[in-house]
């Protein structure tokens, strides 16, 4: 059951996934492309500080690419089932949970492809640049973070996309209402009464989601391929 499901997901997504896999391989190389060794030298002409600063320009692109891959995997997983009204899926002798898990598992395996490409690209990039003393390349860590970010984006969007359009719109609407309503109330009301610092609800939730041990921390953590 699993293998045909994996194959089906691959057939559904391959046109979109292949360019993303290529991008995953190329991104680390592009990120270090300005750091080539100085002519006649084995080391780059840039200072360690300059190298770190230059590679940091590309840092937002890594989590964005991971999120794009996760979204593509999640939406393609349910796209055709939604279009077919789930009639076919519901006529198969499986519980709904079993069916969703099979689909989820297929996407998880496909997520390994861009992560592997990132790992190879990061190693190639690390190999291509002669780093001054004090700097190190972290290709394994970068690729692992990339994989985790894809998985988080995929799982979140997979769960949202599994519902009906109405359910998804409700979730997105509630989240948007919470953020917008929270921001407005925080800015317009709490600031007026001088209680903003104590009752920054949206800020607290965002901190919990994106920092420390929050589920989306992987997106805001350290994406540096080259660091001290």
């Amino acid at each position: 059951m699993y293998q045909p499901m994996l194959y089906l997901h691959w057939k559904q997504i391959r046109v979109a996934l292949i360019p993303l896999v290529v991008a995953s391989f190329g991104l680390p190389l592009v990120a270090v492309s300005g750091l080539g060794p100085a002519p006649g030298s084995t080391a780059t002409s840039l200072s360690a500080y300059g190298i770190v600063e230059l590679t940091r320009l590309w840092l937002p692109v890594f989590p964005a690419l991971a999120a794009a891959i996760g979204a593509t995997l999640a939406l393609s997983a349910w796209n055709w089932d939604h279009r077919l009204g789930h009639v076919y899926a519901l006529s198969l002798p499986l519980t709904r949970v079993e069916y969703a898990l099979l689909k989820m598992g297929a996407g998880m395996v496909l997520a390994l492809l861009p992560a592997l490409a990132m790992w190879l690209g990061a190693h190639a990039a690390a190999w291509a640049v002669a780093l001054p003393e004090g700097l190190n390349a972290y290709p394994n860590q970068l690729a692992f973070r990339f994989l985790l970010a894809i998985m988080i984006a995929y799982s979140t969007l997979f769960a949202m996309a599994a519902g009906t359009v109405r359910t998804t719109l409700w979730i997105v609407g509630l989240a948007a209402a919470f953020v917008v309503g929270g921001l407005l109330s925080a800015d317009l009301v709490l600031t007026q009464v001088g209680a903003f610092e104590r009752f920054d609800v949206v800020g607290s939730v965002m901190d919990w989601l994106y920092r420390g041990t929050g589920p989306f921390q992987v997106f805001t953590g350290n994406w540096s391929l080259i660091d001290v």
Binding site: M1, L8, K11, Y88, S91, P93
Partner: peptide, 29 residues
């Protein structure tokens, strides 16, 4: 459902598959 063969009102198979691929997919269940 393991004992029911169902032909719905509207086609419900995956258009990106070939006939043989759709058969393999269906057979696995």
């Amino acid at each position: 459902l393991a004992r029911i063969g169902y032909v719905p009102e509207r086609p419900h198979v995956y258009p990106m598959l070939t006939v043989a691929e759709q058969l393999r997919y269906h057979a696995s269940f």
